[in-house]
Every structure is written in structure tokens, then in C-alpha cells.
């Protein structure tokens, strides 16, 4: 715990705050978080899990630039929060059922509404619901799934609904192609792949941290950490906010939208 105290800068917003702006997890809170990656099974945060999750203060911080990693290709980002755990083959109908597809993601008020319906299509067997009724942000900022996450319909409303609900990253064993691509193209969520079946290792409500640059997921509740597959060249695209923002940032297309 002493190490945590010295190496973590805690930022303010509460996990369940639904006013939590999207940018908080990125540059605005670029502080000094560094989590050593050498721990295997024990993590000094383990005792955090004994406290009530809702009282936890999330770490919305990024790692300091490290000379050993390429800042060009891997965004130095950390996501911290509660995870929501799903199984295999979570299709886009479960993420956002077709009756809500009348909402147009490019319209800001409808974008918010899509968030309020995120994962509403999950069957009743998921006792803990992802969204509280009446809320438009979820208290879960990380979604963990099994194989073939996001299969089915090509609806871009799916990654959009998750992003609008406040999800920063999905961690799954594998993805359906279109969901993966839509996540990158929109920059809404990081579609990360785990090396092991994390949905069997984590439980809904566990407190987790994802170190993007280290491709690492730490479950503070269980004290275990897991290697993720590197996000690779998709990382900077998502970091920029999607393909258009990335293309502008890198000079592929003119930086200003013609009027």
C-alpha cells in the first residue's frame, strides 16, 4: 500500500458520476500514475476490494511517458473502474436491441439516449443490470466478455451505446470483425483482446485497471493481473477519436472541415 500511495495520483470524479466527461480518462488527467508490471499474483491494491465499490475513487490517469515504450504507437492510457462481466457471443442485439435503432448516433441528444439503453438486451439471467433505471451513464467503465464479442448486426449503434454509457474499454477473448472495426472507426471504446478467458476470472463489480501501454489488466479485487494483446496501430486511431480525427491529426486529410 505504501507503494501505491507514492506512485498514484488520484483524480477526483466518482466512478458512478454520469457527468463524467469522456475526456477525463485521457489527456486532461495526465498525471503520474505508474503501476509496476512486475507483480504476478499479488497486487498492493488488493485491500481496496474490501471496501464498497461505490466509495472508491477511480484513477483517471495516464502513465508518464516511458522511454522504453513507443509513445507514437501505443497511447499511454490507464482505465480504472468497475468491470461488468459477460459471456461468449454477446451480439449487437443484446448490446442495443433493434427497437432503439431509430436513435441516430450522430445527433448528440440521441447519442446520450443510446447510452442509456446500452446492454438492455441482455437476458434476465444477468441479475446485475448494466444500467440503473433512469441513468444515462453506467457505473461500469470496463466490459469484459468471452469469445466473439459484438457478433451479429453491423449496427454502429453498439460501440456507440457502450461509449455513450461511459465504457472506456471492452476486454474480450475475441471480437466479431465489424464490431471491432466500428469501435476503432468511431473511437468510442478500446476493443482489447485478452490472452486468457478473463470473463471466467473476473466478476461483475471487480475493481480493475487497464494499463494500455503495458497491455495489462489488473484485477484489484482478486489481486491478479493479466496480459492483454497489444492494441497495435488501432490504438492511436481510437486515441484520436476515430478514423476521421486520426486522419486529420496525421495530415491524411485536411485538418479543417470545409464549410
Amino acid at each position: 500500500m505504501a507503494m501505491a500511495a507514492t506512485s498514484i495520483t488520484v483524480s477526483n470524479p466518482n466512478i458512478s458520476s454520469h457527468k463524467h466527461p469522456k475526456s477525463l480518462s485521457s489527456n486532461n488527467f495526465r498525471s503520474n500514475l505508474r503501476i509496476p508490471t512486475t507483480y504476478l499474483t499479488k497486487f498492493p491494491f488488493k485491500n481496496l476490494s474490501s471496501s464498497s465499490p461505490s466509495s472508491l475513487t477511480p484513477l483517471c490517469a495516464t502513465t508518464t511517458p516511458s522511454s522504453s515504450t513507443s509513445k507514437e504507437t501505443i497511447p499511454n492510457k490507464t482505465f480504472h473502474g468497475l468491470c461488468y462481466v459477460l459471456g461468449n457471443n454477446i451480439d449487437t442485439d443484446q448490446i442495443i436491441p433493434a427497437e432503439y435503432l431509430t436513435l441516430v448516433p450522430s445527433k448528440p441528444d440521441e447519442y446520450r439516449k443510446l447510452g442509456s439503453f446500452a446492454l438492455i438486451g441482455l437476458p434476465a439471467t444477468y441479475k446485475t443490470r448494466f444500467m440503473e433505471p433512469g441513468e444515462d451513464k453506467s457505473k461500469y467503465s470496463i466490459v469484459i466478455g468471452g469469445e466473439n464479442f459484438g457478433c451479429g448486426s453491423s449496427r454502429e449503434h453498439a460501440p456507440v451505446a457502450l461509449g455513450a454509457a461511459g465504457v472506456k474499454a471492452v476486454v474480450a477473448e475475441s471480437y466479431a470483425r465489424i464490431f471491432f472495426r466500428n469501435s476503432v472507426a468511431t473511437g468510442e471504446v478500446y476493443p482489447l483482446e485478452s490472452e486468457v478467458r478473463l470473463c471466467d476470472e473476473c466478476s461483475t463489480g471487480d475493481v480493475v485497471t487497464i494499463e494500455l501501454a503495458e497491455s495489462l489488466l489488473i484485477n484489484h479485487t482478486t489481486g491478479k493481473e493479466y496480459k492483454l494483446k497489444p492494441i497495435g496501430d488501432a490504438g492511436p486511431v481510437i486515441d484520436a477519436g476515430g478514423i476521421f480525427a486520426y486522419a486529420r491529426k496525421t495530415g491524411m486529410i485536411p485538418s479543417a472541415v470545409p464549410s
Binding site: 471480437y175 470483425r177 476503432v184 497495435g232 488501432a234 486511431v237 478514423i243
Partner: peptide
Amino acid sequence: MASSTIASSSTPFI
């Protein structure tokens, strides 16, 4: 660089 954007490391489970 962008040309490899879509080359995710995904190796689907069979």
C-alpha cells in the same frame, strides 16, 4: 501507418 489500422491482432477462436 494508417494502412495497418485494421490489422488487429485478432486471431479468432475456432
